[in-house]
Design a binder for these strands. Sequence first.
DNA 1: ACTGATTACAGCGCACGGGT
DNA 2: ACCCGTGCGCTGTAATCAGT
Length: 279
Amino acid sequence: MISSTFRHIPGVGPKKELRIWKCGILSWNDFLSRKSRGLPPSLRTNEQLQIVRESVRKLSDGDVRYFRDALPKGELWRLYPDFFENTGFLDIETTGLDRNYSELTLIGVADKHGYSSFVSGENLEEFRDAIDKYDLIVTFNGSSFDIPFVEHYLGNVFRNCAHIDLMRLLRRIGYSGGLKKIESDLGVGRPSSLRGLSGYDAVRMWSLHRLGDTRALPTLIRYNAEDVASLPELTSIAFNQIVGSIGVNGFSKVPSFRPEVNHLPFHIDLIDDLTNPGY
DNA sequence: ACTGATTACAGCGCACGGGT
DNA sequence: ACCCGTGCGCTGTAATCAGT
């Protein structure tokens, strides 16, 4: 719960926040009540009380931007429980890694209600409205890849939401490597006919789609959906483990879920083609 | 009051490691 | 093979605290 956080107050880093917690002040309400009398004067200035009162207001307004701008980037994961209901999980496909020379082909977004795709040349522009529904966006390595890539093509579409980069979060608890490696390290995901595909196959599938292969786009969408579908599980694992490692505080655990994507069609013969060497 | 220890923070430069 | 955001270690500075 974000209301246990004090790191958005200027001058409060990890050590001072820990001291506040150790004094039994586990929430903004504790901080504003008589309980906080025990704190040293420098941890309870009028300015700080003002910021905490403001935080209470901003949270009840659901103003995620206030916290996005005030919190250190590495601590934005703390927003997850409070904005859980309005969190979107996002993954994109492109024709290459360099956004200056590559095309944005597909954006996939999943949330509690399911999965949606936005395809270049079809409905990509609808993403602008779709993204505005969310307070929070979770990606894997999105701060280096997905977010700048999308902004390059669609402009400042993330202006109203905060972004959590799951890759950084997972690395903090000792999991590094690509998404598929971490999925298998953590036992997340399911056996799937598409497991053998890589990001480069997404590039090839898009080319086939443009050449008129009608199997390619559905299979690309399904590939994207399976990547996105793992993000919520990985997020709760990372969140709960980080919360556990902090020890004493007022953060609660978050539930896990997996968006249903098995109804999305794909073409096994295309996958066989792609995974056959020399194709 | 003074002192030394601790803490936060900003500005460096640098190496790393993911994405398609 | 490319890009580049991130985070690390390092430095100096300023503020604060705890103990004397």
